[in-house]
Design a protein around this nucleic acid. Structure first.
Length: 542
RNA sequence: GACCCCGUAGCUCAGAGGUAGAGCAUUUGACUUUUAAUCAAAGGGCCGAUGGUUCGAUCCCAUCCGGGGUCACCA
């Protein structure tokens, strides 16, 4: 019976050191690491065992596999840019470092490619030229090395560092996915066997970033986009602020929150669903332009465009209204596109199904009712609730028979108009009932001063002339409270302190929210939010 | 939450009711300018998990886990 649970492994280490150990299914795994007696919870595959063996050999040869630093003189890109065939002596003594990504051994000489943050460069190693060439035989793809040497161009024409010193900077104990690169005649890079399993890519993003260069590019671009946005705001004198993530009351959006608990305060706290109410308090407090780029959390479904935590930018500017905001957003998007992409013209999708989009201002402006008339032929601005339901039915818009008028309008718009809004389009003049924090329209009864910006059929931004009439605001929140009491758990809760702030007095203010993740999706041509989040939310394993 | 598709070697993928296949990666040997290096040989798998049908299941069925997609919900 005992033998059922024990598998014997004999492991031949170098220098006649024989290590024998058992793998017991009760304890699960016994791993050979620096110390062969250490227990590991994970069974090691043959490649991992072999790498540990190589590690031991290197240590026995006096090599420190995890040294403390390495002085580089150049990045791989700098070498490629600076090399000059007529004057190779200018790069006669360079030091580069990076991860071994490809390895071609030819006995007494070897080529490898190392990868650093700027790209890849080829290394040439030759016995005699590198004192520790024998150690190199124990290096693997995935190891990080430092190389000192001179730069030359090979027979095949590739700029290469001829190594004279070789230093192991980190021994990799687990293999990275191998994706071979080739280049066609046009100079395009072809990837063979690319690391493509989405689950593994998201869960082990570090491997994804090592192996898939275009993934790095997306996140570099994301950073550029956010930096450009900050620059744009900072240049205009608006202040970046930080407001609470943990909130005793949540507000500013219609959404279900995450709930948590603070032990010392003995109280329930919520993770914020929006920054809005705190940022408006700051406008009350006398700041005249504040913005925040921050994580919001909504306890809702996940799909291609929703992650439970996501990044939102909100900005509030005093003495401005929603019409001013439309102009500002046009400038902002143009600035970001030019800074991050070099152009206002973007192409979405992949050949042959592409969509060209221009972010060049001005954007089209259309009222909600006009847009519905344009795309359905139905003029619904004067209709009552039952007539609206009749129109919805005629348009084959599926809607709950009990839905209020505003909900019917919203549904008609979402299904019949929104998909057509491919080029940047401002939709304005939303019904009051859909906009509990927006100021009443100055000329149209029952509407608010609000716009949403649509690009490629998706909402990209949402803005109001902010409601600063505390009595009106209280009535609107009380209505939300009634919805809530009637079972709508996404309706807003009454925030007395926010209402008190408005009673102190908030100047006329324009406010804007813009989803950063979706903006990045748009500007990097990604169809899933998970591809613009470094670590998207995933289900827990096992 | 509903429906559809997927889960096989480190990676990318074939496969078939009867002892598991390829390329790359890995190991051994050859090779001092290669580049998807090449040539020769070898090792590597609880075929996502559990149960059922069957003489026999990785394959068929059910349930579960994980992923992708569509829809619903949600800005």
């Amino acid at each position: 019976m005992h033998s059922l649970f024990v598998r014997n492994y004999v492991f031949c280490a170098p220098h006649n050191l024989v290590v024998e150990y058992s793998l017991c299914s009760v304890l699960r795994y016994l791993a050979y690491t620096h110390n062969p007696t250490i227990l590991s919870m994970r069974e090691l595959n043959d490649q991992e065992l072999r790498r540990r063996e190589e590690l031991q050999l290197l240590i026995q040869r006096g090599v420190n596999p995890y040294p403390y630093s390495f002085d580089r003189t150049h990045s791989s890109l700098q070498i490629l840019e600076q090399f000059c065939d007529d004057a190779p002596e200018q790069l006669a003594n360079v030091a580069v470092a990076g991860r071994i990504m490809a390895l071609r051994r030819m006995g007494k000489a070897s080529f490898c490619h190392i990868q650093d943050a700027s790209g890849r460069i080829q290394i040439y190693l030759r016995t005699g030229d590198v004192p520790n060439y024998d150690d190199f035989k124990l290096y693997d793809i995935g190891d990080i090395i430092g190389v000192r040497g001179f730069v030359f161009r090979t027979k095949m024409g590739e700029i290469t560092v001829h190594a004279q010193e070789l230093t192991l900077l980190c021994k990799s104990l687990s293999p990275i996915p191998i994706a071979k690169e080739a280049h066609d005649e046009a100079g395009n890079t072809i990837l063979y066997d690319a690391f493509a399993d989405k689950e593994l890519r998201y869960r082990q993003r570090y491997k994804d970033l090592i192996v898939n260069p275009h993934v790095r590019d997306i996140f570099i671009k994301r950073s550029t986009i956010i930096r450009a946005m900050r620059q744009f705001f900072d240049e205009r004198g608006w202040l970046e602020v930080e407001t609470p993530i943990l909130q005793p009351l949540y507000g500013g959006a219609l959404a279900r929150p995450f709930t948590t608990y603070h032990n010392a305060l003995d109280t329930t706290l919520y993770l914020r669903i929006a920054d809005e109410l705190y940022l408006k308090r700051l406008i009350v407090g006398g700041f005249e332009g504040v913005y925040e780029i921050s994580k919001n959390f909504r306890n809702e479904g996940m799909d291609r465009t929703h992650n439970p935590e996501f990044t939102m930018m909100e900005i509030y500017v005093a003495y401005k209204d929603v019409f001013w905001m439309m102009g500002m957003v046009e400038q902002l998007l143009e600035y970001i596109a030019v800074t991050a992409l070099g152009s206002t013209e973007i192409v979405l999708g992949s050949s042959p199904h592409t969509t060209a989009i221009s972010l060049r201002p001005p954007f089209r402006r259309l009222t909600l009712f006009d847009s519905i008339y344009e795309y359905t032929g139905e003029d619904i601005r004067a209709l009552d609730t039952s007539a609206l339901h009749a129109v919805a039915k005629k348009l084959h818009v599926d809607i709950d028979a009990q839905a209020p008028a505003a909900k019917v309008i919203d549904e008609i718009f979402t299904t019949k108009v929104q998909p057509h809004l491919v080029q940047p389009t401002y939709i304005t003049d939303y019904p009051l009932a859909l906009s509990p924090l927006a100021k009443k329209h100055r000329t149209h009864e029952g509407l608010t001063e609000r716009f949403e910006l649509f690009i490629n059929g998706q909402e990209c931004a949402n803005a109001y002339s902010e409601l600063n009439d505390p009595i009106d605001q209280r009535q609107r929140l009380e209505e939300q409270a009634r919805f809530r009491a009637a079972g709508d758990d996404e309706a807003m809760v009454i925030d007395e302190d926010f209402l008190h702030a408005l009673e102190i007095g908030m100047p006329p203010t324009a406010g804007l929210g813009m989803g950063i993740d979706r903006l990045v999706m748009l500007l990097t041509n990604q169809e899933s939010i998970r591809d613009v989040l470094l670590f998207p939310q995933m289900k827990r394993l096992g």
